[in-house]
Amino acid sequence: MIQPISPLREETNTRRILPILEFAAAHNSERSHDEQVMKNALQIFDQLSPLHGLSEDERFLLQAASLLHDIGWSQGGSAHHKSGQRLVFRDRSLPLGKKERSMISLLVRYHRKALPSLKHRRFAELKEKNREKVMVLASILRIADGLDRSHQSLVENIIVTISPRKVIIHCSSRKDGYAEYDYGMQRSDLFSRVFNREVVIEWSVAC
């Protein structure tokens, strides 16, 4: 179970998502992809709670990062994960505290390419417990993004099964998702390291 949070805090987090949605929409036209990645990420996060033990506050960080992960495309170039990190870190219109801003910006950076490293200044500046949270959340976001590689929102539902050696991520869809499967597996590198478990992705197509 996700650690409990007060109703007031939960309501505040829900309210803060609205301007984040607006900010994401202003920088990226593919809202359906952002929302699908968010859906994937939150389903995985919720079902992994026995392993990560994180709270609704960390769930909010993941939700926000999912919506913002591709905003860097608005700056052009191929390193959109780094451009996105800078946009989140520098913008003061987003309803985020200093620590939240730093962590979400890092999640945007680590949704693809290089894994978190102490060689990266912003990551190294975090307290150890927050670096661990970034590792967990980034590991989920990377897979969630991979599972919408074609930007067609193919994943309808995710069921996560946890065993001592494996985490099985079963995706239900109405269409084959070869690219989604391949990229989900490719993006599972950090997840396997964080949770010390093999990732297995299963894909089923409803008739």
Score class of each variant (00 low, 15 high):
Val37Gly: 07
Arg142Thr: 10
His80Cys: 10
Val37Phe: 09
Ser173Glu: 14
Phe191Ser: 03
Ser150Thr: 14
Arg31Gln: 12
Ser150Pro: 12
Leu107Val: 07
His111Met: 12
Glu11Thr: 07
Gln3Met: 15
Pro95Arg: 04
Arg16Val: 10
Ala79Leu: 08
Ser139Val: 01
Lys82Met: 03
Met135Gln: 06
Pro4Met: 12
Glu58Gly: 02
Asn28Met: 15
Pro95Tyr: 10
Thr12Phe: 04
Arg92His: 13
Asp34Gly: 06
Val155Phe: 08
Met103Phe: 10
Met185Ser: 03
Val88Ala: 05
Tyr181Arg: 15
His81Gln: 09
Glu202Trp: 06
Phe195Val: 00
Arg101Phe: 12
Ala144Met: 04
Glu56Phe: 05
Ile17His: 02
Lys99Thr: 15
Leu87Lys: 03
Glu180Tyr: 13
Gly146Pro: 00
Arg149Cys: 12
Leu87Tyr: 13
Ala26Ile: 12
Asp46Asn: 13
Ala65Phe: 14
Ser6Val: 10
Met135Trp: 01
Ile169Thr: 02
Ser78Leu: 13
Ser204Lys: 09
Val37Ile: 03
Asn13Tyr: 15
Gln3Thr: 08
Ile140Leu: 06
Met1Leu: 03
Arg174Lys: 13
Thr161Cys: 14
Leu48Asp: 03
Tyr183Asp: 00
Ile159Met: 12
Glu56Lys: 08
Val205Lys: 02
Leu96Pro: 04
Ile5Thr: 14
Asn196Gln: 13
Phe45Ser: 08
Phe23Gly: 00
Ala41Lys: 11
Leu51Asp: 07
Leu96Phe: 05
His33Lys: 10
Leu118Lys: 00
Arg122Ile: 14
Gly184His: 05
His170Glu: 07
Ser204Arg: 00
Ser173Ala: 08
Arg31Ser: 13
Glu128Lys: 05
Val194Phe: 09
Ile162Met: 04
Ile17Phe: 15
Val88Asn: 09
Lys166Gly: 03
Leu68Lys: 01
Gln186Pro: 06
Gln36Ala: 12
Val88Cys: 05
Asp189Pro: 07
Arg112Tyr: 12
Glu56His: 09
Glu198Gln: 14
Glu202Tyr: 02
Ile143Thr: 02
Arg121Leu: 13
Ile104Thr: 01
Val134Arg: 05
Cys207Glu: 02
Met185Gly: 03
Leu107Asn: 04
Ser163His: 14
Asp145Asn: 11
Arg92Lys: 09
Asp148Ile: 00
Ser6Trp: 08
His27Ile: 00
Leu48Cys: 01
Pro50Lys: 11
Ser55Leu: 10
Ser66Ala: 14
Glu180Ser: 13
His52Pro: 14
Pro4Thr: 00
Met103Asn: 10
Leu96Gln: 07
Ser78Gln: 15
Lys166Pro: 05
Arg193Thr: 07
Arg142Trp: 00
Cys171Leu: 00
Val108Lys: 09
Gln186Tyr: 10
Arg197Tyr: 09
Ala179Gly: 14
Ala65Asn: 05
Ser105Ala: 04
Asn157Val: 03
His81Asn: 13
Ile5Val: 02
Ser49Cys: 11
Ile201Gly: 01
Glu132Phe: 08
Ala114Gln: 14
His69Gln: 01
Arg197Ala: 08
Leu147Cys: 06
Phe191Leu: 07
Ile143Asp: 12
Ile20Asp: 06
Gln75Asn: 15
Phe23Ala: 01
Asn196Thr: 07
Leu118Tyr: 14
Gly84Arg: 03
Phe195Lys: 00
Met1Asn: 08
Arg149Tyr: 12
Gly77Arg: 08
Tyr181Asn: 14
Lys127Ser: 07
Lys129Met: 15
Val194Cys: 06
